[in-house]
Design a binder for these strands. Structure first.
Lengths: 227, 227
DNA sequence: ATATTGCATATTGGATCCAATTTGCAATAT
DNA sequence: ATATTGCAAATTGGATCCAATATGCAATAT
């Protein structure tokens, strides 16, 4: 009886805690490049912004540390992690291994709903005039394509890997006008997914990541020097 | 002046916080299988054991959640994560991709010190009579072999993946007497590392993981049912 | 006998308070 | 001018306290 109530109850149960909200907010600031590598995050400062005590802030920072985005140092605050060129290369190695594998599965079982979402982000990305939003939309597009892969563990790794390099990707998207290339490749990948052609989607994704890497490497030093 | 002091000062600086100690302890309990999937961890209970308040316990639990080992649920405590057969397979997929890659690099640059450590754990593993210690020694052996890979991001993923399946591996090591097989394979891998033969070490590691998977699959249902 | 209701208890999330100690800067000494 | 010392302020880790509410069980109603 009243089956509809169940879903509403579940939704109510999912009200995010302060800690969750602060975690998401800080993660966003870091991966957007708004908080740069080496910068210090003071607990008290964040607590005041969100009108909460330091407790939920500290929990959020501990979680960010577990994911490698910051390093908590006593009396110094949470220092935003930097990325050496070696680690940067490592992350691309992992992306090149896992993302083609994931999209292969996802493309084969992709649902019309997911396809709609991905198409939407793809179009938004192509049309967006504000370069500050390119990074986020690019990310959302790729996330959408992987949704139906049924590989949560792979996705967790891909997400964390992407978080680490996202600030650099975003800076590069703004600096160069490699948008054209990205737009073309996104549409090709989307097309392969529409046809359920996992193999082709995988190959295109591999090349897409490789292109991203090639575009980014020359800018890596420039960006890290500028910090 | 007094150069030696620096190192001591650094060492002193690394005194672990309560939160760190509790995190390590809970992680150990989970990956040892002492705390089983589905069990609830009460903050107050842990706090009393360690004679601390709930604050550091909560921070530890948040970190464990970030790594996927528990899921914090209000009024219910931190529930130890279970692993579906699909996720189990996923983790082995990832291990099969990353571990051979890592050991290939590690074997090429392995130092005498690291080799000594790995040999030590290998021998301990072979000689250990108490089956409760097999899992930990097995893990330590593999960790040692990967030490010189210079791939921190890969290692982090491998560690977290291993954490998730370790309870099952340990149960299986105790249930079957596949120790013989493991011992032989460990020595073969170690030998390839001694010779700096990265390719061979990678191939042997791949087969070793594959064997582990084959041994574990039949026991997976048995173990999860028994919980 | 079974289902519903109400209340005491348990349990977590967050606020406030306290302790420890590093950091930064000014005063002092060389 | 430079290096050393001393002290106030800043900052984090942890303890204690409070609020909200879910859970479990007993009492009640059907």
């Amino acid at each position: 009886m009243y089956e509809g109530m169940k879903e509403r109850a579940v939704d109510l149960g999912k009200t995010a805690s302060s800690s969750d909200i602060i975690f998401d907010a800080l993660r966003d600031e870091i991966i957007s490049g708004n908080l740069k590598a080496g910068e210090s995050i003071r607990q008290e400062y964040i607590a005041k912004i969100f009108n909460v005590s330091r407790i939920p802030v500290r929990e959020a920072l501990k979680r960010l540390e577990a994911q490698g985005l910051v390093k908590n140092e006593r009396y110094k605050g949470a220092i935003v992690s930097s990325l050496s060129e070696e680690e940067f290369i490592e992350i691309y190695e992992i992306r090149l291994l896992l993302e083609p594998l994931v999209i292969k599965e996802a493309a084969r079982r992709i649902t019309p709903e997911t396809l709609k979402i991905a198409e939407s982000y793809c179009n938004e990305f192509s049309a967006e005039p504000d370069s500050n939003n390119w990074g986020k939309l690019n990310r959302k597009f790729h996330e959408a394509l992987y949704r139906d892969s049924k590989k949560p563990f792979h996705l967790k790794i891909i997400n964390e890997a992407s978080d680490r390099i996202d600030p650099y990707i975003r800076a590069q998207l703004v600096l160069t006008h490699g948008m054209e290339q990205a737009r073309i490749e996104h549409n090709e990948i989307l097309d392969a997914c529409r046809n359920g052609d996992g193999e082709k989607a995988a190959k295109l994704t591999y090349d897409h990541i490789q292109d991203s890497y090639n575009a980014l490497i020359p800018y890596l030093r420039k960006i890290t020097d500028g910090a």
